[in-house]
């Protein structure tokens, strides 16, 4: 077989990236029209925020192989930093958004710098400790965060005016969904480009074996800090959107169980792939909504699913899809 033929066999037309992104954009555009009503539109935006959170964690866990249990903290930092800048200092939304993202990313890099000499479990505990500290600070620094009382009446992003068209107001939940989903798609594109570049090769080498990676000239400490920076920044972006979408902020939204929920989304979808966590996040966001009867037991279902997937299908939905695909003769 020629190289071109091999390339066609490995990447058939229906697996083409451009078509994938186009299809994703169409689905995003169509969803609010198909699923109308306040209830669904709320859930769609929550889905998009959770996808963003899961993508951020997956970059750290699935690619660089570092178990980060502090994603809830980066989420919370993004939310509080952007919101406080907007409500206290009157900073414009997009500047506050950038600051929230940067702050979360920086926090991730600082945590990783501290914890970088540690491997596997130590890092998990250190990041859990970071999540606990962050939560407690949000709860106890009442002068700044108003503690458990929370911050109310957070405005939506300012309307976008394009000359010649009616202004797009983000008080309209559909417009806000388009904004969040659009940014999520952009983040997906960026991460996809990164993991298909030598950066992806470097991170997976670290995930597979750090000593070996160092023997190939990889500065493992530096790249772990990089992975944490990117993943935490994406988590911070999710936090900014959460604050402006819900309109209120209380520390409990960023308790450590939120980290476990995000972890479940990544694992259920399939860590180490980008598409997996997208479906994992959507599934785990909608599952309790579909199973209304067990609504109270949302977290119990998450816990059970997380354990069962690790035990029986550690590659998550992506692995399941591959197994089914192989049965149907679709894959190579």
């Amino acid at each position: 077989m020629s190289d071109a033929a091999i390339s066609r066999a490995v990447h058939p037309w229906w697996a083409s990236r451009r078509l994938g992104f186009l299809a994703a954009a169409l689905v995003i555009a169509a969803l609010p029209m198909m699923l109308t009503g306040n209830y669904w539109q709320t859930n769609l935006t929550i889905c998009a925020i959770n996808v963003l959170l899961a993508l951020g964690l997956d970059f750290i866990l699935g690619y660089a192989g570092q178990l980060n249990l502090g994603q809830s903290a980066f989420y919370g930092l993004g939310a509080y930093v952007s919101t406080l800048l907007i409500t206290r200092l009157g900073v414009p939304f997009w500047a506050a958004f950038a600051a929230g993202v940067a702050f979360a990313g920086l926090a991730g890099m600082i945590l990783a710098t501290f914890a970088v000499r540690l491997r596997g479990h130590y890092l998990a505990i250190a990041s859990l400790g970071f999540a606990v500290i962050t939560y407690q600070i949000l709860l106890n620094w009442i002068n700044l965060t108003q503690g458990p009382l929370g911050i109310y009446a957070i405005p939506p992003p300012p309307a976008i005016t394009i000359p010649g068209l009616p202004a797009i107001s983000f008080r309209n939940p559909v417009a806000l969904f388009y904004l969040v989903a659009g940014v999520t798609l952009l983040v997906y594109f960026i991460l996809d480009q990164l993991v298909r570049s030598p950066i992806g090769e470097t991170l997976t080498a670290i995930r597979e074996d750090e000593v070996s990676a160092a023997s190939l000239g990889i500065n493992t400490a530096l790249w772990k800090v990089f992975a944490f920076g990117v993943g935490a920044a994406v988590g911070g972006a999710a936090g900014c959107f959460y604050a402006t979408f819900v309109g209120t902020l209380v520390p409990d939204a960023f308790f450590i169980t939120e980290s476990f929920t995000i972890l479940a989304m990544v694992i259920v979808g399939g860590m180490g792939t980008l598409i997996g966590p997208v479906f994992g996040a959507v599934l785990l966001t909608l599952l309790p909504e579909v199973l209304r009867g067990v609504g109270d037991l949302r977290l119990m279902v998450y816990g059970a699913v997380l354990t069962l997937v690790v035990l029986f299908m550690p590659g998550g939905l992506v692995q399941a899809a591959r197994v089914v695909g192989a049965r149907l003769g679709l894959s190579r």
């Binding site: 479990h121 998990a124 479940a264 037991l297 816990g303 997380l306």
Partner: peptide
């Protein structure tokens, strides 16, 4: 795999806690 057992026990923990809550 060194991370999978830890992740699985996180799942067990979340499950047990919420079962007790119920």
């Amino acid at each position: 795999n060194e991370l999978l057992p830890l992740i699985a026990t996180i799942g067990v923990s979340v499950m047990l806690q919420n079962a007790m809550l119920a």
